[in-house]
Design a protein around this nucleic acid. Sequence first.
DNA 1: CTGGGGAAGGGGCCC
DNA 2: TGGGCCCCTTCCCCA
Length: 714
Amino acid sequence: MLDTMEAPGHSRQLLLQLNNQRTKGFLCDVIIVVQNALFRAHKNVLAASSAYLKSLVVHDNLLNLDHDMVSPAVFRLVLDFIYTGRLADGAEAAAAAAVAPGTEPSLGAVLAAASYLQIPDLVALCKKRLKRHGKYCHLRGGGGGGGGYAPYGRPGRGLRATTPVIQACYSSPAGPPPPPSAEPPSGPEASVNTHCAELYASGPGPASALCAAERRCSPLCGLDLSKKSPPGSAPPERPPGERELPPRPDSPPSAGPAAYKEPPLSLPPLPPLPFQKLEEAVPPPDPFRGGGGSPGPEPPGRPDGPSLLYRWMKHEPGLGTYGDELGRDRSSPGERCEERGGDPAASPGGPPLGLAPPPRYPGSLDGPGAGGDGDDYKSSSEETGSSEDPSPPGGHLEGYPCPHLAYGEPESFGDNLYVCIPCGKGFPSSEQLNAHVEAHVEEEEALYGRAEAAEVAAGAAGLGPPFGAGGDKVPGAPGGLGELLRPYRCASCDKSYKDPATLRQHEKTHWLTRPYPCTICGKKFTQRGTMTRHMRSHLGLKPFACDACGMRFTRQYRLTEHMRIHSGEKPYECQVCGGKFAQQRNLISHMKMHAVGGAAGAAGALAGLGALPGVPGPDGKGKLDFPEGVFAVARLTAEQLSLKQQDKAAAAELLAQTTHFLHDPKVALESLYPLAKFTAELGLSPDKAAEVLSQGAHLAAGPDGRTIDRFSPT
DNA sequence: CTGGGGAAGGGGCCC
DNA sequence: TGGGCCCCTTCCCCA
């Protein structure tokens, strides 16, 4: 009979590993939004620790906590407790939160949060500590104007009040996490590196909760990265029709689940914070308020107004702030981010107090989306090694964009808490930062001209962008059918569009400066929507869930595509070999295999098929009569066209080749319609098909274009 | 080892 | 502003 054996320290070791993984974002499957901060964690761990969080994580991957009950700084401590079983004392809390001493969250705030989140162990620990101290407000500068049971560790809200962009946060200014040892973690190092999975979102609340002013002023703010699962695409764990989370019986109506009205993925705007009121009532000696007599900043997350925020955001992020490797784009090496000009650590405005500048880890977002899941997480023995050094380089999972590596170490700015995101310099007051940002703007204007300003002006005035493109719009200009359908022509590339807005949008693709940079990796985009979508990949927001398998996607279209796997539908058929595909892109890829040398291949095929009746068909299995050969030519031509849709010249050439072999004008004209029809079947727009038809008809029947009407596709 | 297919991620861009 | 589609690319699996 075997005795029950117990490995000593197993549970603690397990917790250490979990915490280690959390610091890297490894296998994190939930994001917790607390005001302007994002935390990543593991559902299982949260569910095992907090009844409240348990009720949330079973439904969603993105939780939105009531920031009136839990501040980011407090939740940081709570999360640390969950993963370590330890509650940092005041000094540790300050160190862990990278805040100035005396500004750590009050124990009362932690207790309130623990109660709110239903973490009995933490509640008991807080009470015990409070009793031991014999008071509730023993912590320096405690929350709520002196500690007590203020539900909110307000001082913590000063944290990074001027970091409106998503930014990594470290618990400690330096040093890797402690290696697992036989001793329980103690001292400040115990909480080292426990917060690197925390990101700060722009604005005072979740990404979607930016104030209207910020939305107005910043092309990067007000991003609503949220999406909702389409009807019928809810996560599988959520029963159909169930939208509301189960109410939490003991929570007040104004807080907790009752305040939770929207699925977390939607990141509903948060109500105004009572911060101002608190300040008015008890003006605290807030070290976050910067230099002496300055009027002080807005509440945390609300930096000096929209204009300042805009100036930060509109500036190209100095990617070195987040890691020099950021923004690297495999497919677009030319868009790699430029090195940051200066090192904040070396700058005069850098961290005072002799704090060592955080090392710049060569992180990279090359891997799957930072917040990705599924394939984004690749198993690695590294991750399980207890002695692994999470310090980069080389210490994180390949392909996994560890947030703290990717975004760089947290800045320890000491008193210089107003941080310029582009260059990383810290300033003691918002005014000084403002002046500094002005310099950035001037530099930027000098460097890039006024393209962006022109864009803003053009957008406001309804004018075209620079380069005079807007001046060439000639609605209804004389010409063929294409011009009638798309009268707004781009002066730079000859493309034409139906409406001026689309043309204006297109013309941005010719600009030298892309107006919408990603605040995380710095990659720039021509369209805000593209950038927003890109940001979702960073945050791992996948709102579209498959009912069948639970897999989630960032885009509706992907889900639609994915659902064909379950339905077995393969609507895309190769006209050459009959192969069927669920994804159109795979058909296109497949067709490239058939296409031998593009136009040359088409010409060869034309020569073999269209010119001679009775030659073997495309599949090589049968003989085609002449009309069939014509259609085969049309098909092949259309297929070729589908591969090179943008290349109108190539399309015209292919059509010319097609019609060249159709000596009989009647046959040629008859072949044009199926050609255009098939072109449309391949997914081209009716306009495109009409354009193809127009071009072909001109080639086949002369330049007058009179045949177009007869053969217009329906 | 290689090539092809399946599936998916991400960017571009038009509507 | 978001949806939808196209395109390129990557990863994995399998023959």
